[in-house]
Simulated scan of single mutants.
Amino acid sequence: MQYSKLLLGLVLTVSAYTSSATTTISGTVDYGGATVGTSCDGQSESQQPVFVLKAGATIKNVVLKAGGAADGIHCLGNCKLENVKWADVCEDAATMKGGSGTTMYVSGGSAYSASDKVFQHNGLGSTIQIYGGFYGENIGKLYRSCGYCSNNGSARYVVIDNVKLNTVNSAVVGINTNYGDKATITNLQIKSYSSGKPKVCVTYTGNNTGAEPTSLGEKWNTTNCVVKTSNVTSY
């Protein structure tokens, strides 16, 4: 895949920025609150990301504009998303593609109107950590470990702490227990939450054939779903 821009440790001071191409980031780039976007083609999975974060990259203080968030941000290894805001999620907000032992850190920020999911997890053996007061509103799922990727065969991990959600239309997380996925959830607040509304940790039997995975239902306090009812509160 070709990308026409490469940003290396820049601090941007512009208030708005629009591009038709993916921007690749190395090092740390602070957008200073600028609004950035490309395009959006609904739930089309052929869309390119707005940003690609190379291993070790950090992106800070940026807003992905409504109607321009495309396939969001792709993380290729250890990376950090700090105070990143999605005004309206297009396909996915961010996708972790890093390999075993790598982590995508999501610190603070927010995401609105994700009809499917906010964070997509493809890289095997890697972790997504969502923390620091991240806020999501009107979303399908906050997180999904890929249910039918062709590389499926081993575990992925997600850690959620100090996150606040408003209107979750499907579930907070979805993981594949047959591959050993693990979700650890603490300090989660959900607007008007009551038991099962929404479901918190939903388990699936994943596959690598492209077929829709089978849901095994919501689980609590298991090896795969490390979350107690006391870890989830209503506000």
Rank of each mutant, 00 (worst) to 15 (best):
S4K: 15
L7R: 03
L7I: 04
L8M: 12
L8F: 12
L12N: 10
A16Y: 07
T22D: 01
T22E: 05
T24L: 08
G27V: 00
T28P: 09
T28Q: 02
Y31Q: 08
S39D: 13
C40W: 02
S44G: 14
Q47H: 09
Q47W: 09
P49R: 08
K54N: 14
A57C: 00
T58F: 10
N61W: 11
A66L: 11
G67V: 14
A70L: 06
I73N: 06
H74R: 14
L76R: 11
N78F: 04
N78Y: 13
N78H: 13
C79P: 04
C79V: 05
K80S: 14
V84G: 10
V84Q: 06
W86M: 09
A87G: 09
D88M: 09
A94K: 09
T95H: 12
M96S: 13
G101Q: 02
G101I: 05
G101M: 02
M104D: 02
F119G: 02
H121V: 02
G123M: 12
G123Y: 06
L124V: 08
G125W: 12
I130W: 05
F134H: 10
N138A: 10
N138M: 07
S145D: 10
C146V: 07
C146Q: 14
N152K: 04
A155C: 14
Y157M: 07
I160L: 04
L165E: 07
N166L: 01
N166A: 07
V168R: 04
V173Q: 06
G174E: 00
N176K: 03
D181S: 02
L188M: 03
S195K: 01
K197S: 15
K197W: 01
P198L: 00
V202T: 15
N208C: 10
G210N: 12
G210I: 12
E212K: 13
S215P: 05
L216P: 03
K219H: 10
T222G: 09
T222M: 06
T229Y: 00
N231D: 15
V232S: 00
S234D: 03
Y235T: 08
